[in-house]
Design a binder for these strands. Structure first.
Length: 290
DNA sequence: CTTGAGCGG
């Protein structure tokens, strides 16, 4: 089976890579790292605003901390480019709909990213989005005391358009070295789809979902029939990254929510029939009566 | 595994 890199249980810090990786991959990885750093360096130079990054060979400014939990993944990432991301990068298209987007009008260049696992650090995010060539910074929010990731972070881009491109291309696609999809959204001001006063969400619970159903798939299952669909969310286990097999769909219109509960119940999403009910905890549109 | 751990400096 799999060989353990550290037979004596000593956590390998930033030491030699495990023998399970061959030299070729290591070299590719190192080359990739240098490319990334150079890209970053050039970007920083272009803008002439960030302090100059020291040449490659420099280690990351932040320090790793010994973590009690076993890390399910290795720290070595392989280059991976989502097909849509490739397309977006190849032909940058400035959608006219940008102004209508939630994060739209103003020049928000930052994306919020959630559902991060504890081992997904800045370096990891760099790798993920460096391919766009338009990312300027990545940050993981950590607990000040424990130093552990809070499970979300922020990614800055050179422009609002660049951020939107990344959002469209990456959101919902698979993350490298993880069994989960990107969960991206516009960062704070006037943010994407959270609670908004005066515009209540009418949410349904959708259970019995196949493991391959993503936010997008679920939303697209409903949106053609119900124009008021605002979004869909598959619930995933943060620790394992596995989908829990259920999710939620939010409607802007209560009538459509009710209709969907009747009409779509038992209908197929991907490979399995959905089980639909009203959502309880958050926004059902009907506030609980004390 | 059936009711969402989602906004910093």
């Amino acid at each position: 089976m799999m060989q353990q890199p550290s037979p004596n249980g000593v956590p390998q810090q930033m030491a030699a890579p495990p023998p399970t990786y061959d030299q070729q991959q290591q070299n590719q990885y190192l080359q990739y790292q240098q490319q990334l750093q150079q890209q970053q360096w050039m970007l920083a130079n272009q803008q002439q605003q960030q302090q100059q990054q020291p040449p490659p060979q420099q280690q990351q400014p932040y320090q790793y901390q010994a973590q009690p939990q076993a890390q399910p993944q290795q720290m070595y990432y392989q280059q991976q480019q989502p097909p849509q991301a490739a397309a977006a990068a190849a032909q940058p298209q400035y959608s006219a709909a940008a102004a209508a987007q939630p994060g739209g009008a103003d020049g928000v260049c930052t994306l919020w990213i959630g559902d991060l696992q504890v081992w997904m650090d800045e370096q990891y995010l760099m790798n993920c989005f460096a391919y766009t060539g338009e990312m300027t910074n990545a940050k993981v929010i950590r607990n000040k005391q424990s130093g552990q990731s809070e499970g979300y972070g922020f990614i800055d881009f050179v422009s609002h358009a660049a951020a939107e491109r990344a959002l469209q291309a990456y959101n919902g696609t698979g993350m490298p070295n993880a069994e989960q999809n990107y969960r991206l959204n516009w960062a704070s001001p006037g943010a994407g789809e959270k609670r908004s006063d005066g515009t209540p969400d009418f949410t349904i619970f959708v259970g019995d979902l196949a493991p391959d159903v993503t936010d997008q798939v679920l939303q697209q299952t409903f949106s053609p029939h119900y124009p008021s669909v605002k979004g869909a969310k598959i619930v995933t286990d943060m620790m394992t990254g596995r989908a829990k097999g259920y999710g939620f769909v939010r409607f802007g219109d209560e009538g459509e929510q009710v209709r969907a509960m009747h009409e779509m119940n038992g209908k197929y999403c991907s490979t399995r029939p959905m089980r639909i009910g009203p959502a309880n905890k958050k926004n059902t549109g009907k506030p609980a009566i004390p």
